[in-house]
């Protein structure tokens, strides 16, 4: 099981790496657009729409990795009222709920993706973007997040004991 979740973690990490590269690309796009315009060349209007879509990819490609590193914010004001045994049970219920949510929304994204593929639908911005490419990161994000939540459910790791060493840096 550990091996399985190690592989899941590797894939999550890889998607997060793509997200980081996309942030770098976003900056490059914006800077070159401004430069081009001010140097009297054609503005890269397509790059702006590409930047917009990169925000979508950054959000959902990073989602599973954030589950892994406990990067999604939460509050615990009701949880704090429970006795330790209650808290332990609640914790498992929370993981279960997150798994169900991710599977369900990932499945909706997958079926939207397959409809979009079959119909060849697209979005109209400065260029036509195929709809399936919009649903792709959402499907991947939720699907892989379900597995990351499963790790919390099946192994002793807990989301609620944030260990400073696990989040490097800040």
């Amino acid at each position: 099981m550990t091996t399985f979740f190690d592989i899941v973690g590797r894939v999550s990490w890889l998607l997060a790496v793509v997200a980081k590269l996309l942030i770098g690309m976003l900056i490059l796009f914006v800077v070159s657009d401004v430069l081009a315009r001010n140097l009297g060349m054609r503005a890269l209007t397509w790059a702006i729409s590409a930047s917009e879509y990169s925000l979508l990819y950054i959000t959902f490609l990073s989602m599973p990795w954030l589950v892994r590193i406990k990067g999604h914010v939460f509050v615990v004001f009701l949880r704090g009222l429970l006795p330790p045994a209650g808290r332990a049970a609640l914790e498992k219920l929370v993981y279960l709920a997150c798994i169900v949510l991710c599977l369900y929304l990932g499945w909706i994204a997958a079926s939207s993706l397959s409809v979009a593929l079959a119909k060849g639908t697209y979005e109209t911005r400065t260029f036509d973007m195929p709809k399936w490419a919009v649903f792709l990161p959402i499907m991947l994000g939720f699907g892989l997040s379900a597995l990351e939540w499963l790790r919390y459910l099946l192994t002793p790791v807990s989301m609620y004991d944030i260990d400073p060493t696990e989040m490097e840096g800040m």
Binding site: R37, R42, A43, T45, I48, S49, T124, R125, T126
Partner: peptide
Amino acid sequence: LVIRASPLYKQFFESLGAQMIVQ
């Protein structure tokens, strides 16, 4: 001319030689 771009008229003004900016 530097014009705020919208998908509706971006190509049109570009074909006339204007500069388009998405914002």
